[in-house]
Nucleic acid binder design. Structure first.
Length: 362
DNA sequence: TTCCTGGCAT
DNA sequence: ATGCCAGGAA
């Protein structure tokens, strides 16, 4: 009663403390990651670097940061510049709404706050283009305020050291991780700790981790269970592709044209009838038009025997919609890459299950 | 070549 | 829940 819970909690806290301690030591002794804004005290420069780094790798943002600081040494300089000059400096970085928000925030601070950058988490969070991550980063780096950053690195590191299978891409998961991150933060060393955990995620606990170089290997719950490559968990299945396979069963006498699938795709090395693939559903006329375009087989050369049968097959990462058109040709067309197989010998060839089922019934 | 990553605004 | 973007990984 209650005991299990508090024991687990204590265990968790111990693990967290051990990690934080080791992390800070790693940061002092081994972390050699350098960045032009690291250790910076000017909130303007920290803010600028964080906006540039949103969705952007350090290596790419580096040069942009340097050019911005050279061109606009203070937020007042930035606020006074014409939009176009600022966009020109941003050119190539992507996510251009960040630049719009950057301009709006610079002008807001220059005109409404006499160029003084806000110094509380809440006020920082209220700035355009600043969300929870960026607000915590600025508040901690500029003012050492005790707000834990939660970015992709932190999700990854925390999910691994605790072997948490909680998905990170759900509202619930974000809540759990942000609470854990906050509990984990050594309050008086917010700046050092926040920078350290992100550096650690970037150089050691990478998506493909360098566990052999990790100070926490012996305590990391993921490493101990050999799950480090599986964490963090994301709930959203990789986007399911929708494909429409319009098969044309070409029959000549008692023989059917089939084709060997060789592309690096599903069903490699299996066989299939003539395929018209599309990323949307085509009606019969569209399919037959495509047949003429791709293979030069014109309506005059065949008779349509049967209408389309529609089937669907779900794979982990794609959904295949099938339709079939059965055509009888009066003369055998020249078809590169196809072989004509008499119907009762079709069973010798390997087909995908859905095709096998269809062909055996028709 | 395609796939994956990543904070915020909407 | 999606779109925004570019670059590195697979």
């Amino acid at each position: 009663m209650g005991k299990t819970k508090s024991t687990a909690k204590n265990g968790e806290k111990d693990l967290g403390r051990a990690f934080a301690k080791g992390l800070l030591q790693w940061n002092r002794q081994e972390n050699s990651r350098e960045m032009p804004w690291k250790g910076e005290a000017d909130p303007y420069k920290i803010w600028l670097s964080e906006i540039i780094l949103q969705q952007t790798r350090v290596e790419q943002g580096w040069k942009y940061y340097e050019r911005f600081i050279q061109t606009f040494p203070t937020i007042t300089d930035l606020a006074a510049a014409p939009d176009q000059a600022i966009f020109k400096l941003w050119e190539g970085l992507g996510y251009y709404s960040r630049c719009r928000n950057l301009i709006a925030t610079a002008r807001f601070i220059a005109t409404e706050r006499n160029g003084i950058f806000p110094d509380t988490y809440g006020e920082i969070l209220a700035l355009k283009g600043v969300g929870p991550y960026t607000a915590a980063a600025i508040a901690s780096f500029a003012y050492n305020a005790p707000y834990a950053v939660l970015d992709g690195n932190v999700f990854r590191v925390l999910s691994r050291i605790y072997a948490l299978e909680q998905p990170i891409d759900t509202t619930e998961g974000k809540k759990v991780f942000s609470q854990l991150a906050q509990e984990q933060l050594p309050e008086k060393q917010a700046a050092a700790y926040n920078q350290a955990i992100m550096d650690f995620g970037a150089v050691i606990c990478k998506p493909v981790p360098n566990c052999s170089q990790c100070f926490f290997q012996e305590q990391c719950q993921a490493f101990l269970g050999n799950k480090q490559a599986l964490l963090p968990i994301k709930s959203k299945k990789t986007q399911i592709r929708e494909r429409w396979f319009h098969y044309i069963v070409l029959q000549y006498g008692n023989a059917v044209a089939i084709q060997h699938r060789t592309a690096k795709d599903i069903w490699q090395n299996l066989y299939q009838p003539l395929l018209i693939e599309a990323d949307k559903k085509l009606n019969k006329n569209e399919v037959l038009l495509q047949l003429e375009h791709s293979y030069g087989i014109r309506p005059a050369q065949y008779e349509v025997i049967s209408a389309a049968v529609n089937l669907t097959q779900k794979l982990s990462h794609q959904t295949i919609h099938f339709s079939f058109i059965h055509l009888e040709v009066k003369k055998k067309p020249q078809l590169e890459g196809f072989q004509w197989v008499v119907k009762n010998e079709l069973e010798r060839y390997p087909f995908p299950k859905t095709l096998q089922q269809f062909l055996s019934k028709n």
